[in-house]
Design a protein around this nucleic acid. Structure first.
Lengths: 94, 94
DNA sequence: CGTAGTGTAACGTTACGAGTTACACTCGAC
DNA sequence: GTCGAGTGTAACTCGTAACGTTACACTACG
């Protein structure tokens, strides 16, 4: 029902924002007001997009903070679903 | 454009899930497989709904994990927006 | 060769989700 | 009025995530 392997939002960020503007990671990080390491981690899928980062992206690229966070939510949910069967939960509603 | 004060998801959880089934916090926490404190914190808005908790809720109440996480995202974003003006970010796209 | 851009490892700080234990409060039953 | 259940919550631990700085190794290019 859900995607099998949604791209992490960092991948999308690189393709849709940095690439078209020919921005280096260093330049983009400086503009966003975060460290180069922080942005690099996001771009390479080793960190997620926090609410604050979503707002930074919305300012810098004139996009919707919500869309970035929703992408992140989808990705987090997909990752968490892999552990669904290990959760011991009783059903409370029909 | 966005709601001024979205309820935290815990409030919704209490009203839409616990109340109708007349579940105590202790009962619900046991069924969900988390501590009473953990559930209490969520219900009282002192903790958010994590991806794992969203899946627990989806199992227990036969709901959509996505909807819980989206509610949480909206709430987090609303909270983060309050700090938008304190972020020093350059605009990179028209 | 030297410089720029990049990935990333190591370190610290702050914060949060989750757990346990323990205490104070409310409230209904006896 | 006393007792117990349910509840909120404080104190503490653990693991992890986001952010920062510094430093190193790699690639590519003038």
């Amino acid at each position: 029902m859900r995607m099998h392997n949604p791209p992490h939002p960092g991948e999308v960020l690189r393709e849709l924002c940095l690439k078209p503007l020919e921005l280096s990671v260093s330049e983009a990080a400086r503009a966003l007001g975060v460290s180069r390491k922080t942005l690099s981690a996001i771009l390479n899928g080793r960190a997620g997009i926090s609410p604050e980062m979503a707002i930074r992206l919305s300012i810098a690229f004139d996009t919707s903070a919500e869309s970035w966070l929703n992408q992140q939510t989808q990705y987090d949910l997909w990752a968490a679903e892999k552990r669904r069967k290990s959760l011991r939960v009783e059903r409370l509603a029909a």
